[in-house]
Design a protein around this nucleic acid. Structure first.
Lengths: 216, 216, 216, 216
DNA sequence: CATGAATGAGTTTTCATTCAT
DNA sequence: AATGAATGAAAACTCATTCAT
């Protein structure tokens, strides 16, 4: 875990093989974390020689950073498509929740990667540039929705954006991250119907409860 | 050249050193997963020779399984002390939630271990005998509470125990698992006041909403 | 935690270093058997890093199997050069015996390895693919010689090829395998003159006796 | 392999457990040699704790020496029961051969132990006292038989006792030592009928041939 | 631009042995 | 007289990485 080096210079950033390696690496590190992740498995999954990881990225740590970087790029890309300001507060909130719900489901590996970071107390996350911007983006849209709702008298006033974000994230994230053991030990498939729809409904209902939503 | 014979000396199951090794192993595997975990670090943390891990457990995998087993034993034990049947339904439900909330917080390593298992699709959990029993214990108490509440007319009828368990678990688990990245990236300490109390309150309120609790 | 994937890099089968390692391994395993054999000594004798054994062969067992396989390939190859069918029966038989006599002497390590296998009840040999072929090759040439001799009226009819093979093998093998203890305890050097020639003569004479060889 | 120590002093030399350990050790060392032999397996086979080997013998090397010592004691004990001088020369020779034939079959482990010694160039055999006496005993009886036969005109004169001993030993030993691979690879059971009888007959016939035995 | 060969350092595992009662 | 607990040293094996073309 020395200091991160610049990504090995003149290599084409988006060769096909490079993408496949990154995909495989994301999956590997999401499953096993940085220490547990194996370059050999990554290469095998990508269908090429382990040597290529050094060719494209430099070393294990650089592979990991490249994975993180791309993951954050992706999340950023999916950010602004909702046009929340064009929706009434409650619809905006539900849209946001729905977006989170499915984003987690469709990007399980990214969520897991973040958690792995947490477990090891995030040494590498800090090394990533642009984390600042993410911070800003997390609460601002939500706060605007809550303010609009409060003004319109349909949400209780004084609700913490943090708590709403927390509730959305907890539900969206938990069902994905714990899917395996629920399926395996409790015999419940959190990611399939009917539970999926029920829990999306549950999330929205809980948000209504939390915001004190009143029809009028 | 198969196994010449069973080896793991049948060693006292509750020696002091053994406990220390299990504690250290839980911590290590929770942080780094099975593959990333290092026996050396475990031994060092427990303050004894790496060799002892083999003496007590046999090999790395068996260490891991012992950790897993004890963790699940612990959680089971912690649930037996609540005497839920002696409480009125809503109080029982709140007690259960509060218990989960703090159990997760106080046993962050266990929570993480469970997640590691999930990420790796339960490779080890499956090897654990007696996983059956856990299933039984998970929903039965909750179902009794909900039934009692419905009978008393203070809970809506037809609430799925699964969903209640899901909500409690999601909130209790998320705040622990994601604590580090929230602190780091969002500047919010989920595990300290005032957020902690607020989120416990939030959990209980959400349960009231979910159960349709009415004062009368 | 099974095998994540096949690993033993498919490495050129006849690299120079590989051959040296196999030579060293044959010597080591012949002396100490599988369990007693040390990869470190093998590597040292071959003049390279212990690590290379894993690179070329995968693990200790595979090194052993490669040794076994090559040894059997060698013995097979050495038998093909005799052109026994071109010789009159008795000369053919003597040629075969002489060949066995010296093959054992010149390949003491192979002879020992075969014994190690016997002592341990062929645990490894069984794992070797293609053991079938060996069986075929063992008796066929001998049987042809005996048939030709019987037809020509110079050998008794009805001699078991098995018994002839047994006699040749016993004498050829014993003098090599027991050389050390005969030298040491009985003060007789079985592998040096004059005993060597005397025992070769003895072998041929015994074969004549066994086949009932008559000059005409 | 340091210098052998005196067998750990005041322990009862023929306790039951000690015998069982020696039996197991003989079998183990015969199969795997000194280096390959495992104290754990010995203890397991004897049905007691590994610790007992240290209690009774001191260390691994001392166990090995005790095995060798007892094996030689056994062989000595079986020596003089034949009363060869009372038999006519040819009968005496056949009796000797028959004795060797069955001794090897019934004491396969001892033969193997000796061979293991050979493979590793007999470091420990030399350490054993009384090896001298064995040397003497090997040829003397045989030489007397050959002399008597030559005098009687039924054996050729000038036959080397060494060669006769060699032939007997080779045949008697080979069939036992190589039994496994012959059974396994050549599908021939050297130790069972009909091959056993056939090879005993073969041995005696070969001896007649070697000694030039004539009825008159 | 791409790759196979080689390897040092670390990790797991085994084995004989000693400690302590 | 007998034994369970503990261990250091050495063995097998893995993993990220560099060499060389």
């Amino acid at each position: 875990m020395k200091e991160p080096m610049a990504v090995t210079a003149e290599v084409g950033q988006d060769s096909d093989k490079r993408q496949r390696l990154l995909d495989a690496a994301l999956h590997e590190f999401a499953r096993f974390g940085f220490d547990g992740g194996r370059l050999e498995r990554i290469a095998a999954e990508a269908g090429c020689a382990k040597r290529m990881l050094y060719y494209y990225f430099g070393n294990k740590e650089d592979v990991y950073l490249a994975v993180l970087e791309r993951a954050y790029d992706d999340i950023r890309a999916s950010e602004d498509v909702l046009h929340l300001d064009a929706l009434p507060p409650r619809e905006a909130l539900h849209a946001l929740a729905r977006q989170s719900f499915f984003y987690h489901q469709n990007n399980a590996d990214f969520t897991r990667l973040v958690l792995q970071e947490n477990f090891q107390e995030g040494t590498m996350l800090n090394a990533l540039p642009g984390a600042e911007r993410l911070r800003e983006a997390a609460f601002a849209p939500l706060r605007r929705i809550l303010d609009r709702g409060a003004e319109a008298g349909i949400f209780r006033a004084g609700i913490e954006a943090v708590d709403v974000h927390f509730l959305i994230s907890a539900i969206s994230s938990f069902r994905v991250d714990h899917a395996y053991s629920w399926k395996n030990m409790l015999q419940i498939d959190l990611l399939a119907e009917p539970v999926m729809s029920r829990h999306l409904t549950l999330l929205l209902a809980q948000l209504d409860a939390l915001t004190g939503y009143r029809k009028d």
